[in-house]
Design a protein around this nucleic acid. Structure first.
Lengths: 229, 229
DNA sequence: GTGATATTCAAGTATTCACTTGAATACAAC
DNA sequence: GTTGTATTCAAGTGAATACTTGAATATCAC
């Protein structure tokens, strides 16, 4: 009754999208690119693989249509090909969080114990931003901040945080955010700030989810450090 | 700085979810189970594979946490483990539709030319249902209808449609729906009805998307054929 | 043009995967 | 208990995959 070979091919095409996300290294690449575009060598460093291997993973993502490229001189910048890809990546993590038995252990092994860390949802953060009683801290690498961030956020990459704590405004709660729920930067930031006696919490999710939810974003260079608006 | 082995394992765990969807046959299984639970032999028949092979695919889906089982006598029924899995499957198809170059051709090869077929969005259908000027026709196999359908829909499996056209009410547009955007049943139904001079259109998407969107659903046996409410 | 750098390609290897076939298990009917 | 049926398991094969190494390509600076 139904056209079996044609149906198989159609579903193989759907599966090709999932298949390309079915490698931990390519998943890391998508996670990185969800923060904004990056050249090959930086991606390789980010995922801890050789450049040749990273390039081949990127070719696969390209063939599957999940990423696009842009040439700039000798460098080739990769980026996700659209917001549907971000949604797909979020959906994968959701299913994993709900249904993969060992995920909690693995996440704890990587992230450490989060029990002591406060976290805010996006809605809570927008409320508090409206009330004006928070400082929003973007602790991702500065180039990710430049390609897009929460409006009014201060960029202090996690590596520089310890040395710049004194520049941060006092008297308001500091809410740190980073790449997402499974990113260590914001956790590290909250721990560092707490050790210095500053009230701090993390945004539960990260920048890609914020942008994907249609909340306002801003891009460009960070202001000179000091108290923001 | 970051714990590479732990990070790799965490992302491997995310990837394991995508990987298991990265086979056309397993994708078909998920598509079938999105309509409701099914025993192994029916799934095997639905995807056109041997029972042994289907069983192994199901084991993989089970290990990855995407499906659950229920024993009933000697038969084992598989079902999706939650709505997050449906969302993931929808996300995969969206990315494929947007970014996989050959998908249009493959879909047309399987579905045939759709240019002449009217289709309604979910919102359009709910409006027309409220206005009372449509007959909603569920052309999936009856057991899928029983495990959940659009309220007020009439169940006429596609294979029986030709013989039951005379039982359908006249004077109202007939809107057929089935498993989803890439399912042929509703297309076939619209063509069959049109040939008989009845005004017909299809719902753009299928039952799983309807249910996932939080729209009302109903379950149970179909009424005896004849005009519904 | 030459040299330097970023990226891709190609070949090789160990591993994993999909499917087949045939046997083993688990429950139901008797 | 035996028989029948639904499902799973195990072994085998050919294809695909991830990563490595080393060479090829493309652009820029000069």
């Amino acid at each position: 009754m139904s056209d079996r070979p044609a149906k198989d091919k159609l579903f193989d095409a759907f599966a090709s999208v999932a298949k390309v996300l079915g490698s931990g290294r390519r998943a890391e690449i998508v996670d990185v690119l969800a923060q904004g575009e990056r050249p090959v060598d930086e991606i390789a460093e980010e995922i801890g693989q050789s450049i040749a291997n990273t390039s081949q993973h990127l070719q696969q993502l390209l063939r599957a249509g999940l990423v696009r490229t842009r040439r700039e001189g000798t460098r080739i910048h990769y980026r996700l090909s659209g917001t549907a890809v971000t949604r797909l990546w979020v959906a994968v993590r959701e299913v994993a969080a709900e249904h993969v038995a060992e995920l909690d252990e693995l996440a704890e092994a990587y992230l450490g114990d989060r029990a002591a860390l406060d976290s805010l949802t996006r809605a809570e953060l927008t409320n508090r931003m409206a009330a004006g009683d928070v400082v929003v801290l973007d602790v991702r690498p500065e180039r990710e901040f430049r390609s897009g961030h929460i409006p009014g956020a201060v960029s202090v990459p996690i590596g520089e945080l310890a040395g710049r704590i004194k520049d941060l405004p006092h008297g308001r709660i500091i809410v740190a955010y980073c790449r997402g729920q499974y990113c260590v930067f914001a956790d590290d930031a909250v721990r560092t700030l707490r050790e210095q006696g500053m009230p701090a919490a993390r945004l539960e999710e990260g920048y890609p989810e914020w942008a994907e939810a249609g909340l306002p974003v801003e891009d460009g260079a960070p202001r000179k450090s000091g108290a923001p608006g």
